[in-house]
């Protein structure tokens, strides 16, 4: 799976949990999920669970702690799928 494919799938997942005042266009590799995209801790778990399902991987508490930005999530997905 290419980085672009991962990004597109992840963007679709994240956009489902964005608050109404944050647009899908705000999502970039550098976006901080909680501080910039305003995703709350509960929806952060939803994103992690959706990522597990979409990429057929298992994520740990340590993985979750390193997921600060969209780029961080992609990096973890790449590590787990190769």
């Amino acid at each position: 799976m290419t980085r672009d494919n991962i990004y597109q799938t992840l963007e679709t997942i994240i956009s489902e949990y964005l608050p109404e005042d944050v647009s899908k266009e705000s999502i970039t590799l550098q976006s901080n999920l909680t501080n910039e995209l305003n995703i709350n801790s509960s929806h952060l778990v939803d994103i992690v669970l959706d990522v597990e399902d979409a990429f057929k991987i298992a994520l740990t508490n340590d993985d979750m702690e390193t997921m600060q930005t969209v780029g961080d999530v992609i990096q973890i997905i790449e590590q787990k799928t190769t």
């Binding site: 801790s41 509960s42 952060l44 778990v45 939803d46 992690v48 669970l49 508490n61 979750m64």
Partner: peptide
């Protein structure tokens, strides 16, 4: 109450 899931403290 029946569990659906308990992951990452949610």
């Amino acid at each position: 109450s029946d569990i659906v899931y308990f992951r990452f403290n949610k």
